[in-house]
């Protein structure tokens, strides 16, 4: 009898552990499943990010004008110039995708401040996200490869997708990262020095004037035109984006990045991102940085938007995979040496 009690205690503990780990729940959306679903039919590219796999590093600075201090006590918003590193990228799991085949472009950004805080974000150029929930994103990843019928059914389940699809179908393309806006899309909470918290989203608006280009014209310029263009453009002159913070009003939905907030919401221009150096990714400082959107300074925190948590979980999985495959993505110069 006592032995049966012991066996029961052990079996119960092991079962609870297995349940918590998800081993008994094949339907649970785990970071492993989400990241696996991002892989193209031929499998993922080892050593690379599992999404936004094609990109180029940059360094520069964030010139804060001090206006953001009215919204957040983060040191990044006090007037001053803070070092940044980042990554301009294409939303594809294929690091060799031709530029003109990828609709969504992104920017990973890290702003570091002397108080030791680090603010990372990963933004994209559409004005709204494709879907409302991480589960719907997983559904999208599974439906898209199955063709038009599957996508029609997907849109039936997730009608919010039409706003994103409308942008994807009609928004002009550009031939330069420098002409693209990059939007947080996710809502975050800014807390000011007085303790007041507000829900916000932010955008980086390009200083360069967008020049529309048809995708087939972009294709003619070569598969890697965007990286070459931004490198020569930045070599000629630093490129700038204005960071604009949009403040939600009571009742605005913060939990759904597929819904834009109504026009006319208050905005604050908080500073300028200046990109002054482009570095190829294999040896660049962004290569081994996970632009996890939950790496936040004091004065910024996650909201009820479910995506930053899901992205953090999935990005960590991607990071663990690709760092273990570093030999498949060799550095080109000074192999084995420390990065700058």
């Amino acid at each position: 009898m006592p032995l049966a009690v012991i066996a029961l205690v052990l079996a119960g503990s092991a079962a609870a552990f297995a349940y918590t780990a998800g081993w008994l729940s094949p339907e649970r959306l785990t970071p492993t499943r989400l990241v696996a679903a991002l892989a193209p039919p031929g499998g993922p590219a080892p050593g690379h990010r599992r999404n936004h796999a094609k990109g180029v590093c940059f360094t520069g600075e964030f010139q804060s004008n001090g206006n953001g201090a009215s919204l957040s006590k983060a040191q990044a918003f006090t007037a001053g110039t803070w070092p940044v590193l980042g990554r301009l990228n294409l939303a594809t799991p294929n690091p060799n995708a031709a530029d003109a085949t990828v609709r969504v472009r992104g920017m990973g950004l890290q702003i570091a401040t002397p108080d030791g805080d680090v603010w990372r974000s990963a933004m994209i150029d559409p004005p709204v996200f494709a879907v409302s929930t991480p589960q719907a994103f997983y559904d999208l990843l599974q439906s898209a490869p199955k063709g038009a019928e599957a996508m029609k059914a997907f849109i039936g389940r997730h009608p919010e997708f039409t706003a994103f699809a409308g942008w994807a179908g009609s928004a002009p393309w550009t031939s330069s990262y420098a002409e693209d806006p990059f939007n947080s899309l996710n809502a975050f909470l800014f807390t000011d020095a007085g303790g007041t918290t507000r829900a916000v989203r932010w955008s980086l608006r390009p200083a360069a004037t967008p020049v529309p280009i048809a995708p087939d014209e972009l294709a003619k310029r070569g598969p890697n035109y965007l990286e070459q263009e931004i490198a020569s453009r930045v070599a000629a002159a630093p490129q700038r984006w204005t960071m604009v913070v949009t403040v939600a009003e009571p009742g605005d939905v913060t939990a759904d990045p597929s819904k834009a907030w109504p026009a006319g919401r208050g905005t604050v221009e908080v500073g300028t991102l200046v990109v002054n150096k482009i570095i190829a990714e294999p040896d660049g400082p962004c290569r081994d940085i996970n632009f996890d959107p939950t790496v936040l300074p004091r004065g910024i925190s996650v909201s009820d938007d479910p995506f930053p948590a899901a992205r953090s979980s999935a990005y960590a999985r991607s990071y663990d995979l690709r760092t273990s495959e570093a030999k498949d993505y060799p550095r080109t110069a000074g192999a084995g040496s420390n990065k700058p």
Partner: peptide
Amino acid sequence: MLFIGVGMLSTVAPSYV
């Protein structure tokens, strides 16, 4: 710690953070 560890690695839910 052990339960949180395996639990957090099994989820993309808001509780992850």
